[in-house]
Design a protein around this nucleic acid. Structure first.
Lengths: 347, 347
DNA sequence: GTCTTCTATGCAAACGCTTTCAGCATGGAG
DNA sequence: CTCCATGCTGAAAGCGTTTGCATAGAAGAC
């Protein structure tokens, strides 16, 4: 009793068949009409659209994906989701995906098994049309492997040749920051970064480290190992680094922190120790974190949100077939002077 | 010419059929064996597993979902992804989903069309087994509607009866903050919150507002409308609020900011105006944002990450059928005293 | 031995779409 | 008047799983 005659009072979602029945056409036509394909008479299209909206029908994404191979979903992988950086990238990505009608599947980069950097696992790749990899460290070799995979990818945060990528020039940024301190007259400048990573070829910390050294060398200042300390890229690490540096018998007059968050920790410790910033100590960060202004922190601004937007746009283009060849997209940096940097006190 | 005989040199993913062929069993058996269903002989199971791993086979999620109705994906919706709060929740959620073998699909709560708070659109719901709604404002009426939907949901940030929810006690938190200031001896206390939302019944700002009023009333202090200002829940808004309050002819001796970020703005302005905190002005926030410590900001700590974890665990339980009835789960708050609050200067 | 239970397996029907292919009008070209 | 494009539509074959049902042995019950 009661075949499909009565309107579907049940809570089951309507299927394409329901729409077809109601519009008096075949499911094939419904499928075409709803996706605005050619070869559908205007009147028919109209009728189908009406039927669909009356039924509140929306195509099942899984079935569609199964049949067509496309999922209209792009995946994003990042080692940590909680950092300011990552969430800002995500926000940028979402911004453009939303208008591009694409969904976002997020995954934290599960342990990159030391073996062949397996990368996002297959299960993940299957469900997306493309991936945006943020802050996972690939290097050219990994990039080539990545490029060979069937799922297209865009890497943010690293300069790569084998695959579409985008990043800032970390070395340049560090150089800008250091030069700023140098120009103010500082000579005894400390860096707080991440020791473990500095050794890793082309890692972000290493690049920033290079930029720092380069500016220092240009100013003919010798490398002083006492003045490079570990801040682990966290606020807490920044605090430790600051204590270590400020309690030494010959403290620096300025510090370049490779991230704003470390700089926040430094600022806190300076305040607690009664060391006045910028009178007795200049501090410059890197990022332009949303809280940097409130700290009055001078810093190097990187356009993170914009990076997210760009990544999404590139991905979207690739999916549309306008890909062009893989290339790297550099993004600009800007020095933001605030109140944490000034000429050093008289010696 | 090479049917399926040769091993699949092609880049196409192996399907369940390939595994079946290789293990010498039917696809049905493969399906069962791989998911560790009963009624599969140990030896067979073993053989299938081996074949699968040799082929690097992993079941296509879309096909599986289509056939079984389950997607092993939970969806998360939030109005903004970029806030510290949201990303912390997400991190907590991811933490437990990862071990529960569930994927996370994220979506920003598209414009909640004023009409029947459509909620997460159908397209989204279809793709997930359950949803975690963070900081979308439902109220009991919306909650009931939500509960009627086929997709189970967990709401974080609001106390609801009709649906599983979890939140802190906002009123209590505000009361704790205010009482702290009161106990230090302050009488002229300002609140910075969000005016627009204070009028909305049971919105977070309204609840915090109530808590504030309640503590003040208990201390027999009259309501002074000059002392409640808008900070829009942003750093910038905090700055504006601070300027307005501090430039008035009778400035407060203490301020309760409904969020740490607004407090950051306040602190910045105070510093710029040469007003010493906490000597001339006490400031307390709400959240315990990661940067709060660096600011030396006293605040009310809410366990955001833990909320994410709990939400995910509840969702996971619901999906496993251990749901129990919908209920609200309260989370604890703690006063964190730092250096931004102290007794008022002599009058 | 026969009759039931179980256990283990396979067959084949969904699941809800997309897409190929073929078919039917229609209408202009010849 | 015939022939071919051309525009529109429908039938049906997948897409890669899961799962209900049937079946074949094996093992107990009698």
């Amino acid at each position: 009793m009661g075949a499909r005659e009565s309107q579907p009072q049940t809570h089951a979602q309507p299927t394409i068949v329901d729409v077809a029945l109601r519009a008096g056409v075949s499911v094939a036509t419904v499928s075409r009409a709803l996706r605005d394909y050619p070869y559908v008479a205007a009147a028919t299209r109209e009728r189908v659209h009406r039927a669909a909206s009356e039924l509140r029908y929306v195509a099942d994404a899984n079935a569609a994906r199964l049949a067509s191979g496309r999922s209209h979903t792009i995946g994003l992988v990042a080692p940590i989701l909680t950092s300011w950086y990552t969430s800002e990238v995500i926000a940028g990505v979402e911004e453009v995906l939303q208008v591009a009608q694409l969904d976002l599947l997020i995954s934290t980069g599960r342990a990159p098994t030391s073996k062949s950097l397996a990368g996002p696992d297959q299960a993940f790749r299957q469900r997306v049309d493309g991936m945006i990899l943020v802050d996972v460290f690939w290097r050219e070799e990994g990039a080539r492997e990545l490029a060979r995979m069937p799922t297209p990818a865009v890497v943010v945060g690293e300069k790569l040749a084998a695959i579409t990528s985008l990043s800032i020039d970390n070395q340049l940024g560090a150089e800008m920051a250091t030069r700023h301190l140098l120009e103010l007259g500082h000579r005894r400048i400390a860096v707080v970064g991440e020791l473990a990573a500095v050794g890793v070829t082309d890692s972000v910390p290493q690049q920033r480290s290079k930029g720092f050294r380069r500016a220092m060398t240009a100013a003919r200042i010798r490398n002083d190992r006492q003045l490079v300390v570990d801040g682990e890229f966290t606020i807490e690490g920044g605090r430790r680094a600051a204590r270590q540096l400020l309690q030494s018998n010959e403290p620096p007059t300025a510090m370049f922190c490779m991230s704003d968050e470390m700089a926040f920790g430094v600022l806190q410790v300076a305040r607690e120790m009664g060391i006045s910033v910028p009178d007795e100590l200049s501090v410059i960060g890197f990022d332009d974190h949303p809280a940097a202004e409130a700290f009055g922190l001078s810093t190097i601004r990187q356009p993170v949100r914009q990076m997210g937007r760009l990544a999404a746009r590139l991905m979207s283009d690739i999916l549309d077939g306008h890909q062009g060849t893989a290339r790297h997209h550099p993004l600009g940096l800007a020095l933001v002077e605030r109140s944490s940097t000034a000429p050093p006190a008289m010696a």
